[in-house]
Design a binder for these strands. Structure first.
Lengths: 143, 143
DNA sequence: TAAGATTGAGATCTCAATCTTG
DNA sequence: CAAGATTGAGATCTCAATCTTA
């Protein structure tokens, strides 16, 4: 029994707080490269796809709305990391294509993130790391 | 051995993705009340403190910069959930004080969050929930 | 009309610079 | 000068409305 007042903070706020802390650490790791998590995420999806992606597809894979991608690609284009290319078969569609520079920076970002990841996860044993990933995926895969 | 290309996505991006998904779910739960996670977080810290807090203290407890709190309190004040009060003993200091309306809405928000929390965590057994919290705290408590 | 993309308004956050008070 | 708060600029995100093309 605990005599003190009941916790005012729901469990989920702890979740959000911890995740915010992790995200901040990762942003800091990417910052020296001029990258943000948002930008790296987009580059990452483009590399994974292996080909230019329509902005709608990018929005779907990054779990955000289309208008967000319009602006994100604006900034990526200003950084010369991607270019917009027209789709001749459907003139409504615009695809984002990686530049050589974008591909190279993604590789650097990957290294930086993996270093930050080792720093972060070194606290946890290998089985703990597996557990964490499994639990988070359970939360995510909810309808 | 896996013949396919190595995963392009670092483990940490999975973490960020899961975080984003959870945060979105919680935002949705608060939305009908006209609350956001940011606003609820501030109300929650004020309720926990039991007294008006200087904006600096609020910034510290919410792990963000002061200028963020200035604007957040602007919006909370516009919603009539808090008021700014002057500190007679130090005229530099401004404290945020809950209104009755702010206190009431915090209670409603708490209920909404706890419902969303049950929805989210129902997937996990009680020991799994404990594990998740423990693991996240380990990640957070890093220097 | 549907779909793809963009625009405009606004919420949330950061940083750098500034202003007042200590 | 330090500290507390604010302001201004800009990044990131959402929603509603709009424009073009299918």
């Amino acid at each position: 029994m605990n005599e003190r007042a009941a916790p005012v903070e729901p469990l989920t706020l702890e979740l959000v707080g911890a995740m915010h802390s992790v995200a901040t650490r990762l942003e800091d790791a990417l910052d020296p490269l001029g990258l943000s998590l948002a930008k790296f995420g987009a580059l990452s999806k483009l590399v994974a796809a292996g080909e230019p992606l329509p902005l709608s597809a990018l929005a779907e894979r990054l779990a955000c709305v289309r208008s967000n991608i319009t602006q994100l690609v604006d900034r990526l284009e200003a950084d010369q990391l991607v270019v917009r290319v027209q789709d001749p078969s459907d003139r409504r569609s615009v695809r984002a294509e990686l530049t050589a520079q974008g591909r190279a920076l993604h590789t650097e970002g990957l290294r930086a993130l993996e270093a930050a990841e080792r720093d972060l996860l070194d606290r946890l044993s290998a089985p703990q790391q597996d557990d964490l990933l499994r639990l988070l995926r359970l939360l995510r895969e909810r309808a």
